[in-house]
Every structure is written in C-alpha cells, then in structure tokens.
Nucleic acid binder design. Structure first.
Lengths: 225, 225
DNA sequence: TCTATAGTTCGAGCAACATCGAAGCATCAA
DNA sequence: TTGATGCTTCGATGTTGCTCGAACTATAGA
C-alpha cells in the first residue's frame, strides 16, 4: 500500500492541532499548558491532541519534573508545515487578515531556524546583489568563493558546517512576501549570530523577531542591506 | 493572520480525497467517475469531494463534453503531496502492507513527472557514479560538465530546459526506497525520453511504469545502470 | 505534611460531515 | 426523439471526534 497521507493530513487538519504545530515552528520546546493557551483550548483537550500528535510521530516530548516539553520531531516535519503554510498562503479564498501582532511577524520572524519575513527577503536580496550567493534556476542556491571569504571573516566556521549533511544554502519560499529567503546552515548561522550579538531577540509569545534600533543598523551594515 | 494550514490539511485529510489526490500524482487528468472508482465511493460523494478540492484550489478542472477532467493545480501542490507521502512513509505505526500491485509500484513509478522507485534510485546512483551529477551535502545536486556533455549527446536540449525557471537537477526523497532519486527538468526529460522511445509505458490504472525487457536493457545501458 | 501547579482520564454533549438513495440536468449517439 | 452516460443537487442518516466539567495522579516547594 502507498503511505497513508490522510492520516497525517488529518492530524494536521484540526484547528487546535495546527495552531500548536505552527507555534512549534519557532523551534522552541513548549509545555502542554503553553500549547493549550496557544491553541485557545482547555488543558484536557490539549492533552488529548498532544497524544495524537505523538502517536503520529509529528512531535517528540521530553519530561522535566512536572513539565512536558514538546517540539517538532525533526526538520522533515518542520519543512512539511512550512510547505503547507506556503500552499495555504497562495490560496485566495480564506483571506489573510492583517492585524497588529502580524505586522511584527511580517517584518521578521523565525522560520524553524532561520530568518524569514521582510527582513529575511531583504537579506537574501543583498547576499545575491553582493555576489555572496548565486541563484541557479529559481530554487538552487550556490555559495560563491567571495561569499565563502566574506562569511569566514564574519566568523562563520565552515569546518563545522560542512560536517553536517545539511546544505549550506537553501532557498525557502516566504509565505508573507511570496519571495525567496535564505535557509540552510548559513541561514541558521546568520540568525543565531544576530541573536548572540543581541542585535535582536525572539518574542516570548510568538515567532516574531524583534530587532533593536542599533542592532538593525549593525545587521544591515554587516550584510550590505 | 498566519495562513490557515488546518484548512488545507483538513482537505487532504479525508481518506477519499487523499486517494484522489494520490491518484492524480501520476500527472494525468482523470474524470470524476474515474476518481470515484479510485476512491471507492459513489459518484455523488465524489462530486462533493471534488468541489471541495476545487474550492481549496488544490485541483483544476477542464470540461470536455460531458466529461470533467481533473488534475493537480500545479507543481507546488504535487510537491506538497509528495512531501506528505514521505512523512507518512517514515512513520512506524500504520504499517505498510505489501501486495502484488504494489510490487510494480515499488519497482518503477512516476512521481509527478519523473521516475521513482527502485529503478529511479538505481538511475540516480549510476548518474552519480559516472560523474554526471554531483551531490553537494545531502540535498543539493549539481550537473557536472561531463554530465552536460553526455546528456547533450543523448539528445537533451539544454537551451530549452534553461528557459524554464525550474532547476535542472533536484533531489527527491523516495518513500519506498527511503533514498534520493532524481527530479528536476533532467529527471523529467529522462522519463519522457524513455516513454517516447517506447522502452516503457505507464499503467492505465496506476502510477506504475512498466518497462519492456528490451527497453529495460536499453535504459540500463544508456545510463550505465 | 500540606498546598499549588502540571498534566491526565473519564464521560457526556454536541456539531460537523462523509455517505448514499432518489431524482434531476446535460451531453452524446443513434 | 429516445436511450445511455456523466455528473449534480437534495435530503436523510449515522458516525466521528472535538470539546469541556469533574475528578484524578504526579511533581515541586515550603
């Protein structure tokens, strides 16, 4: 038999569960209670949903004291959610409502482990313009020799990155901008570096990334945005 | 608001609808009745499901006389389904049952527009071994100069392929083999070429690709499998 | 030991929706 | 015009499963 995609899709296809999954796209482990708040349901209901998601192997859980920390099982699952976000965003009928909290999400947010939103797209454009990465076709990205040099100077350790089997650069479609932004281990490094330098911090309650005024300046300068 | 992934997921998450979608992965337009047979439901029920899939913009339809031909809306949708097949296949609980008709599917099948299954993986391995394509990391593929030469000799027209914004080579994870096979416009060309040369033909009732004995020989020889 | 918090299990209520029979419309081929 | 085929609309039925209140277990802290 072919794999049963209805099972997985049905799992994601519930409003409460899909909200939990989307919340977990921030790549942060969340507790059952936090997720119940996120999904706007009671803890009992959340407990039932979380068990289903565990059964379906979309989540993993770590127990710490009286807390349970849930997170997405792996990158494959995260990429599936991302894919669904993209397809959903390209649909016309259920209109996308604009709100104040979404303004921040649209500006800059975390997409599993790299920067997305307006700033993510700007970053990508700048890297291409400066010749650090090269677009081959519309989906394939290549790091140039110059990009390698420049990023090394910024402190990236390619020795470490090359050890992982993950590609350095990867194109990721942005659902709010409908444009490409940078994923892959370099994308991850750039976000982590900005957080480490305290140019920005992640919102406690959402996937939004808040840049400080000076942090944004430094970030823009560093990447010629 | 973030895009509503529950809506799309819920659409795919019904057994009947998911069967229809999987059937359409063969990239062939099917009529409403054919799809109702595929999903094992009455035409009335199928009609209702197909309308929902149209509303959700997962399908498009062409009317021809008293027939209605449905197909997947675009490659993005097909890739989403493929992604779900992969995630589903990597789940342990709902075991994959082996059956006679699946034997053929596992050997060689169409994955939207390129070759998948055992033969697809073998093809990929051969192309890498012969140095026609290069694996960078685990997901990124590059066409080598030698690959360009060799494929040109086989009749591929890179002028045409380069016009499309689609990447030449792309890695696609195979749900039955759990290994990489070749997608992208070259993958598409190779399959089409084999069909054109009548080395193989597509099953009428499924996504299986049937090679003739001599066709398989020629195919293996051409690509050093 | 007592209390507060995190998470669970059970059961009942309720709404959503997949399903099909019956009947209807549209098209094609005589 | 008649009959056959493809597809749809309508209404009734039944099941699934999301939901929460109530009561429970488990852990942490004092």
């Amino acid at each position: 038999m072919e794999p049963n995609i209805a099972y997985i899709a049905n799992l994601i296809g519930d409003t409460a569960r899909s909200r939990m999954l989307t919340a977990l796209m921030a790549d942060k482990a969340l507790t059952a209670t936090e997720l119940s708040v996120e999904a706007d349901i009671t803890p009992q209901t959340a407990s039932s949903h979380l068990n289903k998601l565990l059964d379906g192997e979309l989540l993993i859980v770590r127990k710490q004291g009286r807390h349970k920390y849930f997170q997405l099982k792996n990158r494959q699952v995260a990429e599936l959610i991302e894919h669904m976000l993209n397809v959903s965003a390209s649909i016309s009928s259920p209109k996308i409502v604009t709100g104040p909290s979404n303004e921040r999400l649209r500006k800059a947010r975390i997409c599993y482990d790299h920067l997305a939103g307006e700033l993510g797209v700007k970053l990508f454009d700048a890297l291409v313009r400066e010749g650090w990465i090269l677009e081959r076709g519309s989906e394939e990205l290549v790091l140039t020799a110059q990009g390698h040099r420049s990023l090394s100077q910024l402190g990236i350790d390619f020795e470490v990155l090359n050890k992982s089997r993950r590609p350095l650069c990867k194109a990721c479609l942005d659902w709010s901008e409908r444009r490409t932004h940078l994923a892959g281990s370099i994308g991850k490094w750039i976000l982590n570096d900005a957080l480490k330098r305290q140019w920005a911090h992640q919102d406690l309650d959402s996937r939004a990334i808040q840049f400080t005024a000076s942090g944004l300046n430094a970030f823009n300068k560093q990447y010629r945005i």
